[in-house]
Amino acid sequence: MDLSSISPVLLVASIMVSATPILFAAIGELVVEKSGVLNLGVEGMMITGAVVGFAVAVNTESPLVGFVAAAVAGAVLSLAFGFLTQHLLSNQVATGLGLTLAGLGLSALIGKPYEGMKSPTLPKLDLGPLSDIPGVGKMVFSHDIMVYVSILLVAAVWAFLKFTRGGLILRAVGESHDSAHALGYKVVRVRMIAILFGGACAGLGGAYLSLVRVPQWTEGMTAGAGWIALAIVVFASWRPWRILIGAYLFGGVTVLQLNLQAAGAKVPVALLSASPYLITILVLVIISARGAHGAPASLGRVFHASN
């Protein structure tokens, strides 16, 4: 095995790229869960975002339009979830699963003609002097715009939840929907907005996968990234900055195992390929053994304003 073939600069750079899809999906799901809704359809919305983003980008030859379309597609799917769970009061676990299954089918259907095509990809940003810093410049400051958008999004969500009135209402709805309702807040409306935001973020994450990370469309290409995003929300104990840590950690594991495979490490390939999933389980175990605190108190409960 030749570990010297792994360059640390490229390693960090590729970790940032491989973490970005999960980061988008996880920060969206964090907001959804903070409002007291458990949407297990992240995988379905992500893959739909991936295919719609890819298809639109190929047809318009503009990756940015692709990203917008992916966000819209994710939001539209999440609207179906929101309508079912918030207005028709269906079980959130079952509905989320249904969303994932439907999303996988839908994406395969839309994506068939696009298999094997190449998409236009995002240009790397030139951040002037920052990009010219030796080492660090190439590592951190020469990515495409979406990498920075995802980090800014984490900061924005953090600030929104912590400092704004809207964030306070959202958290109140998630902690105790009955009290929030009694105070006159529109529980269902707040949750619908959160669900739509989560859907749009998952769509962006999916599009990043198909437009930048891979960049190609293959059926089932998310391969559980949406589920890993859900696990990261638990890992982060529902705190925005920890989402960033979690996503980069998993990005790291993914990139490292690929690098080790390429370097011909004396570890079975199956074990390396399974490692992101195994580590997800391990992290969940450690978090839950510690006693997972921070889950919104109304998470997953059906709200019905009966008088």
Binding site: A80, L84, A94, T95, L97, G98, L99, L101, A102, G103, L104, G105, L106, S107, A108, L109, K112, E219
Partner: peptide, 13 residues
């Protein structure tokens, strides 16, 4: 073939 997969997902929905 994927149309059927979608069809089944819709059924659950």
């Amino acid at each position: 073939g994927a149309a059927i997969q979608l069809f089944q997902g819709m059924l659950l929905f």
